[in-house]
Every structure is written in structure tokens, then in C-alpha cells.
Design a binder for these strands. Sequence first.
RNA 1: GCGGACGUGGUGGAAUGGUAGACACACGAGACUUAAAAUCUCGAGAUGGCAACAUCGUGCGGGUUCGAGUCCCGCCGUCCGCACCA
Length: 877
Amino acid sequence: MAIERYNAPEREKHWQGVWDGKDVFRTATDPSRPKCYVLEMFPYPSGRIHMGHVRNYTMGDVLARFKRAQGFNVLHPMGWDAFGMPAENAAMERKTHPKKWTYENIAAMKTQLKSMGLSLDWSREVATCDPSYYVHQQRLFLDMYAKDLAYRRKAKVNWDPVDQTVLANEQVIDGRGWRSGALVEQRELAQWAFRITAYSQDLLDALKTLEKWPEKVRLMQENWIGRSEGLMVRWKLVPETVPSGETELEIFTTRPDTLFGASFMAIAPDHPLARAAAAKNKALADFCDECRRMGTSVADLEKAEKRGFDTGIKAVHPFDPSWQLPVYVANFILMDYGTGAIFGCPGHDQRDIEFAKNMQLPIIPVVAPKEEPRRAQAIAKVHEGVAYLDEGEMINSRFLDGLSPEAAFDEVARRLEKEVLAGKPVAERKVNFRLRDWGISRQRYWGCPIPVIHCGTCGTVPVPADQLPVMLPDDATFDVPGNPLDRHPTWKHVDCPKCRQKAVRETDTMDTFVDSSWYFARFTAPDAKTPVDKTAIDYWMPVDQYIGGIEHAILHLLYSRFFYRAMGETGHAGGKNLREPFAALFTQGMVVHETYKSEAGAWLLPTEISLEGEGAERRATELATGKPAIIGSIEKMSKSKKNLVDPDDIIAHYGADCARWFMLSDSPPERDVIWTEAGVAGAGRFMQRVWRVIDDVLEKAAPKGAKQPDVLGDEAMAVRRAAHKALDQVGKNIEGLRFNVAVAQLYELSNTMSAMLSKSGPGLDWALREAAEIFVQMLGPMMPHLGEECWTRLGYNTLLVEQPWPKADPALLVDDTVVVAVQVNGKRRDELTVSRSATKDEVEKAALALDSIVKALEGRAPKRVIVVPQRIVNVVV
RNA sequence: GCGGACGUGGUGGAAUGGUAGACACACGAGACUUAAAAUCUCGAGAUGGCAACAUCGUGCGGGUUCGAGUCCCGCCGUCCGCACCA
């Protein structure tokens, strides 16, 4: 008799209620048990979850449930990255308060996440906008300030004119704000920064230890930190050419070996020497202004010619007092790298050679290939304007001639370290980093207040610990741009904690990336009176598996690595004082979807069109007008392109298990998955199929707890082998996050059980029950609700989620007989079924006796026969 | 420009150097049905052949190996990251 369809939406609510009622996902710190901390990047509470969240959290949930079944004490928490601009924008647009907007969004999204059936410990929920969270962040800030890891500086900053705030270097992409897309301006402001550069070397070195991080992310961070080894060289200036008091110019170079190829010096328009010279030279001042106005976008840089302005200043070559070089202000020199000054060696630097050509400066090749004709070719190329960057030997370089560039580097360093200028060595070896300190001041309301007070007498005064948190005032106004804290009538006016005189609060708030730089630590003891609890953090950290999007490869992941070190420095990282917060990282791919446009070119939602046909014949029709619509490219799901599918709709229609299953199947988790209606429908069909197969199996299967029969026939053994092999493989594949492969194995086992229903044999009923139970337990992490439903149907009144992971019987993982392919000269000709224990000789004999092989040999005698036991025989003639 | 990844049927994708295409989607044929949906069974890389089978086949060209999707070298293509970093 046919059973009813499985009503996923209804049953899922039921099981979620059961889990909630028994509080099965609550986790306690318990050092007597092995732990596993599974974490997915927490969401920004935008108001709705999207398919990217569904994918991310499903992956984490499968792993968490699997680890739980394996006996680990699993920490799997969730929270909210709740400060940020959108809340303030909403406040401006809709006359609501950021706090109200945020908490309403959190409530809505929490309901959505709950409908996914995630095994989360909601008792550990944190929201970064809550004073109970940010009070600790302020504490951490003050401790970092005390250790000089946080400091205030006057600096040129990236100013986003649309968001009216400062951006960190990491948040400027192609010269535009990462959120607003507005062209970033340079402004000089006093602002707070974290001394991330204090850890440059350590952050770089430790990347090597992060073996369970994607190579790609480690490389991106390595490039971002950007270490280079070189020499700081101080050049004497010719006094009568210098308009101000400077007597020397310090430059950084990674190629001191090419010192004899120097033909000019170049300094940044903002270099002190340039400013001094510009003060007395109107034309130079104009040139510097022009450089500053120049855009920094990719397009601008490509167009920009290398140009310079001769300051008239002369520098003296460190190896030759009679050799004077002109000092230029040049538009391609960056003030914030090295010393903002270089020596130009046109022969071996592409920028320098372009500059030299434009400014008609000499070009002297000093490195060239050892042999002709390659040497002559390289030199000719240099004179055509192509810098020579490869290996070779030194030429035109006096005492360096004939040396390799590496040896020349050392020789120059050795000599210049001994030379003295104004009482100090002329040069010293120096390691330079591209990484800049992290500017964290934001001129916004909806962020963590920076807990300091500015006093006219005492200067910068930390807010005393007992006065924390510095709370955000609720009565702020959002009707005009700018910082609501700054224009608040009373909030910033306080008395100085030291001298009791009138003072003002810092009105900047922290970059929201600070909030997300330590939430993983807070999860280990979310109610602790201190930022973290030592016992809890020692037990739980590091995160054993972190899962999130590749877009955080640098920003969030680098900041967190720094912050965890800073927490260690300030005594907030527990007794083990680990430096790395995330032992393993997995970056999942995006959820992408086709895009649709109306004839008029407006984006259309998938629900606003209908599709028919297939392949090249596929046609879309706009439902509202009945007119043809255009099927566009496959893109990341986004509001702007309207190619969104609402998880709520899918869950309400097909069920959470179906959405989860679809997310896990098909695409490998690190690649993009294309959301298709057909794919989801397929997942839905599988869900129903499981329901039927389990029902059918139960009709044939032995009762629950039946004793294993003494005799098991071939059919029973085949079922057992299939089940245990799947068990072995699925476990390994979940562990390795190869969910798509694990899914395929579950399909296979369900097909096998299905096929066996029509068979009979000794003990098959018992084997089928065993297989069904194993199958349901493996299904559990992926389709947890259906898993519970089937578990009950199998006759149990326990919860599947509380069952230990079954163990595969090693004896069942290998077959008695194996199929061995037989090749002739590497070409497959036949196959052979032999006993597993057959010797090489036996296999070889049997292979050579095969009719097809005899035929393929055409009477030739085998020269060699390679037998790989249980795999392959290759007959070579 | 620098760095990296990837390239397998109609599609998504499997494959410790050892039978390429598991599994799924889409497709085709059949069964059930008044019919449809749902479900079930079967088929399927390409070419040739009624068939057994043969030949070709993992972007292209070489190489290593008894054996290469997998390793090495050189191209081509796609995607990603960084970028006037001295």
C-alpha cells in the first residue's frame, strides 16, 4: 500500500519543536570530553537570510552534527555582526532608529535560521551592538591602548565622501569605497589605529603553520603583508642646492646591487624635502598639487605617464663623491611606502626606465646575461626602453663587475654599513612591509564608541574601567549626513576623569571589523564578566573549522589573526595563549543564478517570468506583460540584479531538508553552485524517495533489534557490504567537507536498497534493516528532520540526533573477489574476476589465458607482465 | 605587469599514477493511467556496425612511465587576487 507523501514543512516544525524542547544543542564547557568548535561566519542582520547563508550554515551544520555523533563536545554558536552603516542608512531613509531596525532584523532572521533546523546553541547568541558585548570590546581597546597597540595619530586617511567616513586601506578597492563605491578622497585627520604592523613578520611567518587553510587565502595574505628585504641608504645632499636645512636623503631599495646604474633620485610630492622645496618654488608647488589631485584608480594609473619636476637639489653617490644626481619630485612615488624616496635605476626597473625616457636621463645597464648574444640583446632592449629584470652578472659597476647580483647586494651592504655619514652608518639592512596600521576611527553613530575622553589639560584620557560601557545615546538624530554623536547636544560633554575639568568624549566609533575580530572568542563564554573566560577559552579555542566566503580572505581573517595576538598580549587569550584563532578554514563558493531582463532592459525576478524549452530553445516570458524576456548570464545572487530566490519560499514549499540537500549535492563546496528550479525539485523528489524506500524496506526487513542470523546469503552480504562501504566513505567525505561526494554515496546506497527489495535470500531481511538504519543515521546530518522521522519509523523512540555515529565493519569493506582490468600495452582489453587472495602468478596466468587477451596478443609473446594486486594486469609485448 | 586557480559527456560533477565519465540533472524509450501528474523499469561519451565489436576520447603540443584526467615542460582559453610597493 502506498504511503502518504512526506509533509516536510509540517514535520520539520514538529522536530524543531522537539529539539528545542529537549534543548539538545546546548553545549557546556567540559574539559573531560574532546571538543570540536565549528563556526560559520556570523551574518550581518540585513533583515532576510539569503541563499549564501543557507549554503554556508548548511555546511557547518552537517559537520557539527557529524562531529556530535562522533562523540565530540561540539560548540556551534550563532550571533550577529550587528553594527554598521545599513542601519544608519535605514534610519535616514525610513525615520526609524538603527537599534530598532537592527533588533527587528535579528528577530526576523533568527526565525528564518531556526526554520533551517540548524544544530545551534542559541543560548550563546551574541549581538555585537549590544552593550553586553561592546563593553568588553571597549575594555580590550583600553588594554590595547595601555600596551600601545592602539594609538591616535594624525594621518592622511581615505575619506569616503558618500558614507562620510574614513576607510582602512583594506576597504578601498580600486580607489573606491568598498561599500559605497564612491571615489575615495585623501584627508588629513586625527584618528585611532591598531598597530597591526607590530606583527607583520609574525603574521607572515605563521601563515606557514596554517596547513588547513586554503593555499589561496594564505597567498593573498602573504602578498598583502608584502615583505621585502633591502637596504636603507642615506645619500648626502649638496648643501648649496637645498633650499631648507636637510643634509641628507634616505631611500629604501631592494636592489642596492644596481647602485652604479643610478641616474636620478625621486621623491614623493608629499615628501618633506619636496614640501620644503615647493615652498620656495611656485612651479614645483603647482606640480605637487597636480600629483595629489591625480586619481588612484586602475584606469587613471594606466593612463598616467611617469612625470617629474627637477627640484634643483643634488644628491651625492655613496660610492663616488664626484658623482651628483638630480633629485626629482615624481608622480609615481608613494609617500607611505619605504621612505617616500628612491634612487632611480632605469636599466632594471620598468617605472624608472619610462621616467628616464620621458625626462631624458641617462640609462646605464648594470646587469646583463653572461653570454653573448643574449647579453647584447638584453642591452639593446634596455636602450629601447625595456628594463632587464632577470639573472646575470654585474657590468659597468666598477668593483662589482663580474659578481652575481646577489653577491653584489651583499658587497654593497658590507661596504656601506662601514661608511659613516653624520655619525651614523650610510646604510643598514632593512625589512619593509606593505602592510599598514589599521585605522579604526569611523565618523558614525552605529558602532562601538571609542572609550576615551579628550581633555584640554590632560590630553587623551581613557575612560575608567568602572565607567564602562560608554553607551551609545538612544536619542540621536539621523536627518542630516555626518556623525550624530558629534552633533548630539549633550553626549560628548563630560568632565575629565583626571582633572574634573570640562572635556569631550571621542565621538568616533570603531570600524565594525573590530567587532568581528573577536566574536569567536566571546562565544566560548558569552556571559563572562570579563571579555573571555580563561577555562572556556583554553578548552574551546582554536576554532576547529571555520567556514565562510572568500571575500573575507584579507580583511576579516587578517584582522582576526592580529586581534587574537593582541588579546594574548593583553592577557585575554587564555593560558595557552594561542596566536592563531582558526585552525582550519574553508571558503565556500557563492550561490549563483541566471539573470532575467524585460525587453525594456529592466531586471526581473525569477518569479516574474516563466520559462519553457531547453538548451538553445529556452525562452523566457515576462508574466506581467506576456512579452518575451531576455535570459542573461549567471551571476551571484544580488538584489540589484534581482536574481534572488528567497530561502523562506523554498523552505515553505519544499522544506528545509530539501534546500539543505540541494546545497550539498552537485557542486563541490568550494565552487559556485548554480541554483536551478530543476535541481531543487530533484532534491525534493529524493526526499520523497527516501521516505518511500524506508517504508518499503520496513515491509521486508527484520524487526528492530533482531539477532543477526547465523547464515547470511550472497544478497544479504551484498547489502551489508554496500552499507558499510558507504558508511566508511561518507564519514571520510563529511570530514573532508566533500559533501557532494557524500551525497552521491547516499544516493547509491538508497539505489542498492531499492534494487534488493525484489530479491530474497538467507538473512536479507536482517541485512536490509541494518542498511536502513545505517542509511538513516548517515542522512541525519544532511536532512536532520527527515532523519528523525525515519528513525521513529524504524521503531525507535529516541532522537536520531543523540545517536552515536555507527562504526563500519572493516571486514565488510573488502570483497572476497575483485574485478581486475586486463590491459595489453596499456589498453584495456578485458577484465577478470579473481579471488582477493589470488597470488600475482595466479592472476597473471588467468589473465594470459583469457580468449580476448590471446587474440589481442596475436601470437606475440609477452615481454613483461605487470600485476598490480586487486587492480590491474598490464601485458606488455 | 605580478601572483594563483581551473579546463572531463547536453549540464553539475566523480576518479590514492591503475577499468575515465560514479552520482545527479536534463533527455529518450517503455510500464502503470481514460488522460495527466507522480512513480517504476530500461537506455545513453563520440564515430562506424543489426550485433559481437572496433576506433577515437579528459583544452592544444610535447615528455616521463608498463600505464597519465592525474606528474613534468611549452602553448591556448576562462576565472580570481594584487598592482606605480622602490
